[in-house]
Computed example of a mutant assay.
Amino acid sequence: MECDVLIYEFGYTGKKALQLCETFSLSYLIIDDGLNIKTIDKFINLNSLKSCKLALICVCDKKEIQKK
């Protein structure tokens, strides 16, 4: 799959990044290691990604980083 923007992590900042993509009509895909939402076509795993123009890493705070 290809996209303009890859959003990595879908918490508060990931949702804001999604709004930004929709505002500017950018194609996007989302990867979130902590969510298992395979029924929504915008959520993918890393192996499915062929290319993206911009990757946004949307991690909010130190606690989220330590959980990984």
Rank of each mutant, 00 (worst) to 15 (best):
Q19P: 10
S27G: 08
I30C: 09
K68V: 15
S48N: 14
C52F: 00
G14T: 00
L26M: 14
K38H: 09
K67V: 12
E2H: 05
Y12N: 10
I7P: 01
V59P: 00
L20I: 15
L20F: 11
K42G: 05
S48C: 07
F10E: 03
F43C: 05
I30H: 03
S27W: 01
F43R: 05
L46R: 14
T13Q: 06
E64T: 06
L26W: 11
T39W: 13
E9M: 02
L56F: 09
D4F: 07
C21V: 08
I31V: 08
C3E: 02
D61N: 10
L35F: 05
I40V: 10
Y8M: 00
K68C: 03
Y12F: 12
I57E: 00
E2T: 05
N47L: 04
S27P: 02
L20Q: 12
L6R: 00
K15T: 03
I37Q: 08
K38F: 08
K15E: 13
C58P: 14
D33Y: 12
E9K: 11
T39S: 11
K67W: 05
I44K: 01
G14V: 00
D4Q: 08
C21N: 10
L35Q: 10
E9Q: 06
K38V: 15
L56D: 12
L56H: 08
F24K: 11
C58T: 07
L46W: 13
L6H: 05
Q19V: 07
K67Y: 10
I30N: 01
Q66D: 05
C3L: 07
K38Q: 13
C21H: 02
Y12P: 02
L18R: 03
V59G: 02
Y8D: 00
I44C: 01
C58R: 09
T23M: 06
K62E: 07
G34Q: 13
F43A: 06
I30A: 02
V59S: 03
G14F: 00
S51Q: 15
V59R: 01
N45F: 12
I30P: 01
K16V: 12
D32A: 11
L35Y: 10
I37H: 08
L56S: 05
C58K: 14
I57M: 06
L35S: 12
D32T: 09
K16F: 02
K15Q: 04
K38N: 03
C21M: 15
K68S: 14
K16A: 12
K42C: 06
N47T: 12
I30F: 02
C52S: 06
